[in-house]
Nucleic acid binder design. Structure first.
Lengths: 215, 215
DNA sequence: CGGTGGGTTGAGAACTATCAAATCGAGTGG
DNA sequence: CCACTCGATTTGATAGTTCTCAACCCACCG
Protein backbone atom coordinates (compact mmCIF):
# COMPACT_ATOMS: atom_id res chain seq x y z
CA UNK A 1 0.00 0.00 0.00
CA UNK A 2 2.87 2.31 0.73
CA UNK A 3 3.82 2.05 -2.93
CA UNK A 4 0.42 2.98 -4.30
CA UNK A 5 0.22 6.34 -5.96
CA UNK A 6 -2.60 7.82 -3.92
CA UNK A 7 -0.60 7.88 -0.73
CA UNK A 8 2.94 8.10 -2.06
CA UNK A 9 3.16 11.84 -1.55
CA UNK A 10 2.03 11.85 2.07
CA UNK A 11 4.21 12.59 5.05
CA UNK A 12 4.55 9.79 7.63
CA UNK A 13 1.96 11.15 10.05
CA UNK A 14 -0.71 11.54 7.37
CA UNK A 15 0.19 8.18 5.91
CA UNK A 16 -0.35 6.61 9.28
CA UNK A 17 -3.74 8.31 9.62
CA UNK A 18 -4.76 7.14 6.18
CA UNK A 19 -3.72 3.58 6.81
CA UNK A 20 -5.89 3.56 9.92
CA UNK A 21 -8.88 4.44 7.74
CA UNK A 22 -8.33 1.66 5.27
CA UNK A 23 -8.42 -2.08 5.38
CA UNK A 24 -7.17 -4.75 3.06
CA UNK A 25 -9.70 -7.04 1.47
CA UNK A 26 -9.57 -9.99 -0.91
CA UNK A 27 -12.13 -10.81 -3.56
CA UNK A 28 -12.49 -13.84 -5.78
CA UNK A 29 -12.75 -13.75 -9.56
CA UNK A 30 -16.35 -13.02 -10.50
CA UNK A 31 -17.30 -11.30 -7.25
CA UNK A 32 -18.92 -7.89 -7.58
CA UNK A 33 -17.79 -5.21 -5.14
CA UNK A 34 -20.12 -2.44 -6.21
CA UNK A 35 -23.37 -2.56 -8.17
CA UNK A 36 -24.39 -0.02 -10.77
CA UNK A 37 -26.80 2.47 -9.24
CA UNK A 38 -25.92 1.55 -5.65
CA UNK A 39 -24.76 4.14 -3.23
CA UNK A 40 -21.04 4.68 -3.53
CA UNK A 41 -19.73 3.39 -0.22
CA UNK A 42 -16.25 2.11 -0.99
CA UNK A 43 -13.22 3.59 -2.64
CA UNK A 44 -9.67 2.37 -2.67
CA UNK A 45 -6.90 1.06 -4.77
CA UNK A 46 -6.02 -2.24 -6.24
CA UNK A 47 -3.00 -4.03 -4.84
CA UNK A 48 -3.10 -7.12 -7.03
CA UNK A 49 -5.41 -8.62 -9.64
CA UNK A 50 -7.69 -7.01 -12.16
CA UNK A 51 -11.26 -5.76 -12.10
CA UNK A 52 -13.79 -4.50 -14.61
CA UNK A 53 -16.15 -1.53 -14.57
CA UNK A 54 -19.36 -2.25 -16.44
CA UNK A 55 -22.83 -1.00 -17.23
CA UNK A 56 -25.82 -2.65 -18.84
CA UNK A 57 -28.68 -1.44 -21.02
CA UNK A 58 -32.29 -1.79 -19.94
CA UNK A 59 -32.52 -5.16 -21.66
CA UNK A 60 -29.27 -6.58 -20.37
CA UNK A 61 -26.62 -5.86 -22.99
CA UNK A 62 -23.35 -5.31 -21.14
CA UNK A 63 -20.50 -2.94 -21.88
CA UNK A 64 -17.23 -2.93 -19.96
CA UNK A 65 -16.31 0.75 -19.54
CA UNK A 66 -12.96 0.30 -17.87
CA UNK A 67 -10.39 -2.23 -16.80
CA UNK A 68 -8.66 -1.69 -13.51
CA UNK A 69 -5.05 -2.79 -13.11
CA UNK A 70 -2.92 -3.01 -9.97
CA UNK A 71 -2.27 0.39 -8.36
CA UNK A 72 -5.34 1.87 -10.09
CA UNK A 73 -8.00 3.57 -8.03
CA UNK A 74 -11.60 2.38 -7.87
CA UNK A 75 -14.78 3.92 -6.59
CA UNK A 76 -16.42 7.29 -6.88
CA UNK A 77 -15.33 9.87 -4.31
CA UNK A 78 -17.50 12.95 -3.84
CA UNK A 79 -20.63 11.45 -5.32
CA UNK A 80 -23.79 9.82 -4.12
CA UNK A 81 -23.95 6.75 -6.27
CA UNK A 82 -21.87 4.66 -8.53
CA UNK A 83 -22.65 4.73 -12.24
CA UNK A 84 -21.15 1.33 -12.94
CA UNK A 85 -20.53 -2.03 -11.34
CA UNK A 86 -17.10 -3.12 -10.17
CA UNK A 87 -16.39 -6.82 -10.57
CA UNK A 88 -13.22 -8.85 -10.10
CA UNK A 89 -11.89 -10.43 -13.27
CA UNK A 90 -9.27 -12.36 -11.36
CA UNK A 91 -8.77 -12.98 -7.67
CA UNK A 92 -7.71 -9.61 -6.34
CA UNK A 93 -6.69 -7.78 -3.22
CA UNK A 94 -7.48 -4.16 -2.53
CA UNK A 95 -6.94 -1.50 0.06
CA UNK A 96 -10.34 0.08 0.62
CA UNK A 97 -11.72 3.03 2.55
CA UNK A 98 -15.21 4.12 3.49
CA UNK A 99 -16.10 6.78 0.98
CA UNK A 100 -17.18 9.48 3.39
CA UNK A 101 -14.11 8.99 5.59
CA UNK A 102 -11.90 9.07 2.52
CA UNK A 103 -13.65 12.17 1.22
CA UNK A 104 -12.98 13.97 4.49
CA UNK A 105 -9.37 12.86 4.52
CA UNK A 106 -8.79 13.90 0.93
CA UNK A 107 -10.35 17.26 1.59
CA UNK A 108 -7.84 17.88 4.36
CA UNK A 109 -4.84 16.62 2.39
CA UNK A 110 -4.35 18.49 -0.84
CA UNK A 111 -1.68 16.02 -1.98
CA UNK A 112 -4.26 13.26 -2.04
CA UNK A 113 -6.70 15.30 -4.05
CA UNK A 114 -3.95 16.30 -6.41
CA UNK A 115 -2.90 12.70 -6.99
CA UNK A 116 -6.51 11.70 -7.46
CA UNK A 117 -7.05 14.51 -9.94
CA UNK A 118 -4.01 13.49 -11.96
CA UNK A 119 -5.26 9.90 -12.13
CA UNK A 120 -8.78 10.90 -12.99
CA UNK A 121 -7.55 13.07 -15.85
CA UNK A 122 -5.57 10.14 -17.22
CA UNK A 123 -8.62 7.89 -16.94
CA UNK A 124 -10.73 10.47 -18.75
CA UNK A 125 -8.21 10.63 -21.60
CA UNK A 126 -8.25 6.85 -21.77
CA UNK A 127 -12.05 6.65 -21.78
CA UNK A 128 -12.29 9.22 -24.55
CA UNK A 129 -9.69 7.42 -26.59
CA UNK A 130 -11.73 4.24 -26.21
CA UNK A 131 -14.78 6.12 -27.52
CA UNK A 132 -12.95 6.49 -30.84
CA UNK A 133 -12.51 2.74 -30.93
CA UNK A 134 -16.16 2.02 -30.10
CA UNK A 135 -17.55 4.62 -32.45
CA UNK A 136 -15.36 4.34 -35.49
CA UNK A 137 -13.18 1.24 -35.67
CA UNK A 138 -13.85 -2.10 -37.37
CA UNK A 139 -13.86 -5.37 -35.46
CA UNK A 140 -10.32 -6.24 -36.48
CA UNK A 141 -9.01 -2.80 -35.59
CA UNK A 142 -10.67 -3.04 -32.19
CA UNK A 143 -9.14 -6.41 -31.42
CA UNK A 144 -5.71 -5.20 -32.53
CA UNK A 145 -6.07 -2.13 -30.30
CA UNK A 146 -7.04 -4.22 -27.31
CA UNK A 147 -4.09 -6.55 -27.75
CA UNK A 148 -1.71 -3.60 -27.85
CA UNK A 149 -3.34 -1.95 -24.86
CA UNK A 150 -3.13 -5.08 -22.74
CA UNK A 151 0.42 -5.66 -23.83
CA UNK A 152 1.35 -2.13 -22.75
CA UNK A 153 -0.49 -2.10 -19.44
CA UNK A 154 0.75 -5.52 -18.40
CA UNK A 155 4.24 -4.58 -19.63
CA UNK A 156 4.30 -7.97 -21.23
CA UNK A 157 7.18 -9.30 -23.27
CA UNK A 158 6.24 -10.78 -26.61
CA UNK A 159 3.88 -13.30 -25.02
CA UNK A 160 0.80 -12.15 -23.17
CA UNK A 161 -1.19 -14.17 -20.65
CA UNK A 162 -4.64 -12.91 -21.56
CA UNK A 163 -6.51 -11.67 -18.49
CA UNK A 164 -9.82 -11.65 -20.35
CA UNK A 165 -12.09 -14.36 -21.69
CA UNK A 166 -13.46 -13.98 -25.20
CA UNK A 167 -16.76 -12.82 -23.76
CA UNK A 168 -15.01 -10.16 -21.71
CA UNK A 169 -13.00 -9.04 -24.71
CA UNK A 170 -16.27 -8.76 -26.60
CA UNK A 171 -17.79 -6.70 -23.78
CA UNK A 172 -14.84 -4.29 -23.78
CA UNK A 173 -14.88 -3.91 -27.54
CA UNK A 174 -18.61 -3.66 -28.12
CA UNK A 175 -18.64 -6.84 -30.24
CA UNK A 176 -19.89 -10.40 -29.93
CA UNK A 177 -17.78 -13.32 -28.88
CA UNK A 178 -17.90 -14.81 -32.38
CA UNK A 179 -16.68 -11.65 -34.04
CA UNK A 180 -13.77 -11.41 -31.59
CA UNK A 181 -12.85 -15.00 -32.32
CA UNK A 182 -13.01 -14.48 -36.06
CA UNK A 183 -10.88 -11.33 -35.85
CA UNK A 184 -8.27 -13.17 -33.84
CA UNK A 185 -8.03 -15.99 -36.36
CA UNK A 186 -7.81 -13.45 -39.15
CA UNK A 187 -4.84 -11.82 -37.41
CA UNK A 188 -3.35 -15.27 -36.84
CA UNK A 189 -3.67 -16.27 -40.49
CA UNK A 190 -2.07 -12.97 -41.47
CA UNK A 191 0.97 -14.00 -39.43
CA UNK A 192 0.63 -11.03 -37.08
CA UNK A 193 -0.11 -12.95 -33.89
CA UNK A 194 0.00 -16.54 -32.64
CA UNK A 195 -2.39 -18.21 -30.23
CA UNK A 196 -0.42 -20.98 -28.50
CA UNK A 197 -3.36 -21.53 -26.14
CA UNK A 198 -6.77 -20.10 -25.57
CA UNK A 199 -5.46 -17.73 -22.93
CA UNK A 200 -2.02 -17.10 -24.43
CA UNK A 201 -1.07 -14.83 -27.27
CA UNK A 202 2.16 -13.68 -28.86
CA UNK A 203 2.64 -10.65 -31.04
CA UNK A 204 4.74 -11.64 -34.03
CA UNK A 205 4.54 -8.43 -36.06
CA UNK A 206 4.07 -5.50 -33.68
CA UNK A 207 4.41 -2.87 -36.41
CA UNK A 208 1.69 -4.42 -38.56
CA UNK A 209 -0.52 -4.76 -35.50
CA UNK A 210 -0.07 -1.06 -34.71
CA UNK A 211 -0.91 -0.10 -38.27
CA UNK A 212 -4.13 -2.08 -38.10
CA UNK A 213 -5.03 -0.74 -34.65
CA UNK A 214 -4.58 2.88 -35.64
CA UNK A 215 -7.01 2.57 -38.55
CA UNK B 1 -16.43 34.54 -14.94
CA UNK B 2 -17.22 35.11 -11.29
CA UNK B 3 -20.11 32.70 -11.69
CA UNK B 4 -18.09 29.86 -13.19
CA UNK B 5 -17.65 26.88 -10.95
CA UNK B 6 -13.88 26.70 -11.02
CA UNK B 7 -13.45 29.95 -9.17
CA UNK B 8 -16.68 30.18 -7.22
CA UNK B 9 -15.13 28.92 -4.01
CA UNK B 10 -12.20 31.33 -3.95
CA UNK B 11 -11.75 34.19 -1.54
CA UNK B 12 -11.58 37.68 -3.07
CA UNK B 13 -7.78 37.94 -3.02
CA UNK B 14 -7.27 34.63 -4.77
CA UNK B 15 -10.05 35.39 -7.19
CA UNK B 16 -8.32 38.62 -8.08
CA UNK B 17 -5.04 36.79 -8.63
CA UNK B 18 -6.74 34.22 -10.83
CA UNK B 19 -8.50 36.81 -12.93
CA UNK B 20 -5.12 38.45 -13.57
CA UNK B 21 -3.92 35.15 -15.04
CA UNK B 22 -6.80 34.76 -17.41
CA UNK B 23 -8.12 36.57 -20.40
CA UNK B 24 -11.38 36.48 -22.24
CA UNK B 25 -11.37 35.32 -25.84
CA UNK B 26 -13.95 34.88 -28.56
CA UNK B 27 -13.94 32.19 -31.21
CA UNK B 28 -16.10 31.71 -34.27
CA UNK B 29 -18.03 28.57 -35.09
CA UNK B 30 -15.69 26.12 -36.75
CA UNK B 31 -12.48 27.52 -35.29
CA UNK B 32 -10.19 25.03 -33.57
CA UNK B 33 -8.60 26.15 -30.32
CA UNK B 34 -6.47 23.08 -29.65
CA UNK B 35 -5.27 20.36 -32.00
CA UNK B 36 -5.07 16.71 -31.09
CA UNK B 37 -1.50 15.82 -30.19
CA UNK B 38 -0.41 19.42 -29.73
CA UNK B 39 1.13 20.56 -26.54
CA UNK B 40 -1.55 21.48 -24.03
CA UNK B 41 -1.08 25.24 -23.65
CA UNK B 42 -4.53 26.55 -22.83
CA UNK B 43 -7.11 25.70 -20.23
CA UNK B 44 -10.15 27.60 -19.18
CA UNK B 45 -13.88 27.60 -19.02
CA UNK B 46 -16.61 28.34 -21.43
CA UNK B 47 -18.69 31.45 -20.84
CA UNK B 48 -21.05 31.12 -23.79
CA UNK B 49 -21.46 28.87 -26.81
CA UNK B 50 -20.64 25.23 -27.34
CA UNK B 51 -17.53 23.35 -28.40
CA UNK B 52 -16.66 19.80 -29.33
CA UNK B 53 -13.80 17.54 -28.30
CA UNK B 54 -12.81 15.17 -31.09
CA UNK B 55 -10.26 12.62 -32.23
CA UNK B 56 -9.62 10.98 -35.56
CA UNK B 57 -8.32 7.60 -36.66
CA UNK B 58 -5.20 7.27 -38.79
CA UNK B 59 -7.28 7.40 -41.96
CA UNK B 60 -9.46 10.33 -40.94
CA UNK B 61 -12.62 8.90 -39.41
CA UNK B 62 -13.76 11.35 -36.73
CA UNK B 63 -15.35 10.73 -33.37
CA UNK B 64 -16.63 13.48 -31.10
CA UNK B 65 -15.67 12.44 -27.58
CA UNK B 66 -17.31 15.24 -25.69
CA UNK B 67 -19.52 18.28 -26.01
CA UNK B 68 -18.68 21.30 -23.95
CA UNK B 69 -21.48 23.52 -22.66
CA UNK B 70 -21.30 26.93 -21.00
CA UNK B 71 -19.55 26.84 -17.61
CA UNK B 72 -17.75 23.60 -18.53
CA UNK B 73 -13.99 23.41 -18.29
CA UNK B 74 -11.75 22.73 -21.28
CA UNK B 75 -8.11 21.80 -21.64
CA UNK B 76 -5.82 19.36 -19.97
CA UNK B 77 -4.13 20.59 -16.81
CA UNK B 78 -1.13 18.66 -15.51
CA UNK B 79 -0.28 17.00 -18.79
CA UNK B 80 2.10 17.49 -21.65
CA UNK B 81 -0.23 17.21 -24.59
CA UNK B 82 -3.84 17.21 -25.50
CA UNK B 83 -5.37 13.94 -26.61
CA UNK B 84 -8.15 15.58 -28.59
CA UNK B 85 -8.96 18.67 -30.59
CA UNK B 86 -11.19 21.41 -29.24
CA UNK B 87 -13.34 23.11 -31.86
CA UNK B 88 -16.13 25.64 -31.56
CA UNK B 89 -19.53 24.37 -32.69
CA UNK B 90 -21.06 27.81 -32.35
CA UNK B 91 -19.55 31.22 -31.81
CA UNK B 92 -18.26 31.09 -28.27
CA UNK B 93 -16.52 33.10 -25.62
CA UNK B 94 -14.16 31.64 -23.05
CA UNK B 95 -12.04 32.64 -20.13
CA UNK B 96 -8.66 31.02 -20.71
CA UNK B 97 -5.42 30.63 -18.79
CA UNK B 98 -1.96 29.54 -19.76
CA UNK B 99 -1.71 25.95 -18.65
CA UNK B 100 1.49 26.17 -16.65
CA UNK B 101 0.36 29.31 -14.84
CA UNK B 102 -2.99 27.69 -14.11
CA UNK B 103 -1.28 24.52 -12.90
CA UNK B 104 0.80 26.53 -10.45
CA UNK B 105 -2.21 28.45 -9.26
CA UNK B 106 -4.30 25.33 -8.80
CA UNK B 107 -1.51 23.65 -6.91
CA UNK B 108 -1.48 26.51 -4.42
CA UNK B 109 -5.26 26.70 -4.09
CA UNK B 110 -6.76 23.43 -2.97
CA UNK B 111 -10.29 24.72 -3.60
CA UNK B 112 -9.53 25.00 -7.30
CA UNK B 113 -8.14 21.50 -7.48
CA UNK B 114 -11.12 20.22 -5.57
CA UNK B 115 -13.59 21.86 -7.94
CA UNK B 116 -11.63 20.57 -10.89
CA UNK B 117 -11.60 17.06 -9.46
CA UNK B 118 -15.35 17.12 -8.93
CA UNK B 119 -15.91 18.20 -12.52
CA UNK B 120 -13.48 15.69 -13.91
CA UNK B 121 -15.19 12.87 -12.06
CA UNK B 122 -18.53 13.92 -13.52
CA UNK B 123 -17.03 14.04 -17.00
CA UNK B 124 -15.56 10.59 -16.52
CA UNK B 125 -18.94 9.21 -15.52
CA UNK B 126 -20.47 10.83 -18.58
CA UNK B 127 -17.79 9.47 -20.91
CA UNK B 128 -18.22 5.96 -19.56
CA UNK B 129 -21.98 6.19 -19.90
CA UNK B 130 -21.49 7.19 -23.53
CA UNK B 131 -19.32 4.12 -24.05
CA UNK B 132 -22.39 1.99 -23.37
CA UNK B 133 -24.19 3.85 -26.13
CA UNK B 134 -21.32 3.47 -28.59
CA UNK B 135 -20.65 -0.16 -27.80
CA UNK B 136 -24.10 -1.62 -27.42
CA UNK B 137 -26.95 0.53 -28.67
CA UNK B 138 -28.69 0.48 -32.04
CA UNK B 139 -28.83 3.55 -34.28
CA UNK B 140 -32.32 4.48 -33.16
CA UNK B 141 -31.48 4.05 -29.49
CA UNK B 142 -28.43 6.27 -29.94
CA UNK B 143 -30.37 9.04 -31.60
CA UNK B 144 -33.05 8.88 -28.91
CA UNK B 145 -30.37 9.07 -26.21
CA UNK B 146 -28.75 12.09 -27.83
CA UNK B 147 -32.03 13.94 -28.09
CA UNK B 148 -32.71 13.37 -24.41
CA UNK B 149 -29.18 14.35 -23.42
CA UNK B 150 -29.31 17.59 -25.36
CA UNK B 151 -32.75 18.35 -24.02
CA UNK B 152 -31.46 17.90 -20.47
CA UNK B 153 -28.22 19.84 -20.83
CA UNK B 154 -29.84 22.74 -22.63
CA UNK B 155 -32.72 22.64 -20.16
CA UNK B 156 -34.98 22.97 -23.13
CA UNK B 157 -38.73 23.04 -23.00
CA UNK B 158 -40.53 20.73 -25.37
CA UNK B 159 -38.87 22.29 -28.39
CA UNK B 160 -35.11 22.06 -28.85
CA UNK B 161 -32.99 24.28 -31.08
CA UNK B 162 -30.52 21.66 -32.23
CA UNK B 163 -26.96 22.84 -31.67
CA UNK B 164 -25.57 20.09 -33.90
CA UNK B 165 -25.69 19.46 -37.64
CA UNK B 166 -26.55 15.96 -38.84
CA UNK B 167 -22.87 15.33 -39.49
CA UNK B 168 -21.98 16.36 -35.95
CA UNK B 169 -24.75 14.19 -34.52
CA UNK B 170 -23.31 11.30 -36.52
CA UNK B 171 -19.82 12.01 -35.19
CA UNK B 172 -21.06 11.99 -31.60
CA UNK B 173 -23.05 8.79 -32.08
CA UNK B 174 -20.54 6.79 -34.11
CA UNK B 175 -22.92 6.61 -37.08
CA UNK B 176 -23.17 8.08 -40.57
CA UNK B 177 -25.22 11.07 -41.50
CA UNK B 178 -27.67 8.92 -43.48
CA UNK B 179 -28.31 6.58 -40.58
CA UNK B 180 -28.98 9.52 -38.25
CA UNK B 181 -31.42 10.97 -40.75
CA UNK B 182 -33.22 7.66 -41.18
CA UNK B 183 -33.47 7.17 -37.41
CA UNK B 184 -34.94 10.63 -37.00
CA UNK B 185 -37.59 10.02 -39.62
CA UNK B 186 -38.37 6.67 -38.03
CA UNK B 187 -38.96 8.42 -34.67
CA UNK B 188 -41.01 11.05 -36.47
CA UNK B 189 -43.21 8.49 -38.20
CA UNK B 190 -43.71 6.76 -34.85
CA UNK B 191 -45.15 10.02 -33.53
CA UNK B 192 -42.46 10.37 -30.88
CA UNK B 193 -40.85 13.54 -32.18
CA UNK B 194 -41.57 16.26 -34.73
CA UNK B 195 -39.09 18.08 -36.94
CA UNK B 196 -40.59 21.49 -37.68
CA UNK B 197 -37.32 22.53 -39.30
CA UNK B 198 -33.96 21.06 -40.00
CA UNK B 199 -32.53 22.53 -36.81
CA UNK B 200 -35.65 22.33 -34.68
CA UNK B 201 -37.09 19.36 -32.88
CA UNK B 202 -39.91 18.76 -30.46
CA UNK B 203 -40.36 15.78 -28.21
CA UNK B 204 -43.97 14.64 -28.41
CA UNK B 205 -43.77 11.43 -26.38
CA UNK B 206 -40.97 11.78 -23.82
CA UNK B 207 -41.77 8.50 -22.09
CA UNK B 208 -41.60 6.48 -25.31
CA UNK B 209 -38.38 8.26 -26.21
CA UNK B 210 -36.87 7.32 -22.85
CA UNK B 211 -37.90 3.71 -23.27
CA UNK B 212 -36.19 3.57 -26.64
CA UNK B 213 -33.07 5.35 -25.40
CA UNK B 214 -32.59 3.02 -22.46
CA UNK B 215 -32.63 -0.06 -24.66
C1' DC C 1 -33.03 31.69 -61.88
C1' DG C 2 -29.19 28.65 -61.35
C1' DG C 3 -25.87 27.41 -57.88
C1' DT C 4 -24.66 25.63 -53.27
C1' DG C 5 -24.71 23.15 -49.05
C1' DG C 6 -27.23 20.54 -45.92
C1' DG C 7 -30.65 17.05 -45.52
C1' DT C 8 -33.46 13.10 -47.11
C1' DT C 9 -34.42 8.93 -49.61
C1' DG C 10 -33.30 4.69 -52.23
C1' DA C 11 -30.69 0.45 -53.73
C1' DG C 12 -27.10 -2.54 -53.04
C1' DA C 13 -22.83 -3.96 -50.67
C1' DA C 14 -20.32 -4.84 -46.52
C1' DC C 15 -19.98 -5.87 -42.00
C1' DT C 16 -21.46 -7.79 -37.75
C1' DA C 17 -24.96 -10.39 -35.16
C1' DT C 18 -27.48 -14.51 -34.62
C1' DC C 19 -28.28 -19.26 -34.48
C1' DA C 20 -26.39 -23.79 -34.81
C1' DA C 21 -22.93 -27.22 -34.90
C1' DA C 22 -18.30 -28.86 -34.33
C1' DT C 23 -14.05 -28.67 -31.69
C1' DC C 24 -11.03 -27.96 -27.98
C1' DG C 25 -9.35 -28.22 -23.12
C1' DA C 26 -9.26 -28.69 -18.40
C1' DG C 27 -10.85 -31.15 -14.75
C1' DT C 28 -13.15 -35.75 -13.05
C1' DG C 29 -13.79 -40.25 -11.92
C1' DG C 30 -13.01 -44.82 -13.14
C1' DC D 1 -3.68 -43.42 -17.86
C1' DC D 2 -7.88 -42.80 -20.33
C1' DA D 3 -12.66 -41.98 -21.46
C1' DC D 4 -15.99 -38.53 -20.18
C1' DT D 5 -18.16 -34.21 -19.42
C1' DC D 6 -18.96 -29.39 -19.28
C1' DG D 7 -17.89 -24.95 -20.52
C1' DA D 8 -15.34 -22.10 -23.60
C1' DT D 9 -13.95 -21.33 -28.21
C1' DT D 10 -14.03 -21.83 -33.11
C1' DT D 11 -16.30 -22.38 -37.37
C1' DG D 12 -20.22 -22.25 -40.61
C1' DA D 13 -24.56 -20.52 -42.66
C1' DT D 14 -27.80 -17.00 -42.68
C1' DA D 15 -30.16 -12.82 -41.37
C1' DG D 16 -30.16 -7.99 -40.09
C1' DT D 17 -28.14 -3.36 -39.58
C1' DT D 18 -25.50 -0.02 -41.00
C1' DC D 19 -22.51 1.86 -44.55
C1' DT D 20 -21.70 3.41 -49.20
C1' DC D 21 -22.81 5.52 -53.29
C1' DA D 22 -26.13 8.00 -55.89
C1' DA D 23 -30.05 10.69 -56.75
C1' DC D 24 -33.08 13.99 -55.20
C1' DC D 25 -35.05 17.78 -52.50
C1' DC D 26 -35.13 22.14 -50.34
C1' DA D 27 -33.97 26.53 -48.45
C1' DC D 28 -30.96 30.17 -49.07
C1' DC D 29 -28.16 33.39 -51.78
C1' DG D 30 -26.04 35.80 -55.19
Amino acid sequence: MRASAICCSLDPVALDALSRLGRKIHVLAGQTLVWEGDESILVGNVLAGMLKLSTVTGDGREQIVGIVYPSDFIGRPFGRDSHHSVTALTDASLCVFGRSAFDRFAHEHGEVEHALLARTLVELDRARHWMLLLGRKSACERVASLILEMSARLNAEQEIALPLSRQQMADVLGLTIETVSRSLTKLKHAGIISLPGTRRLTIDAPDKLKRIADG
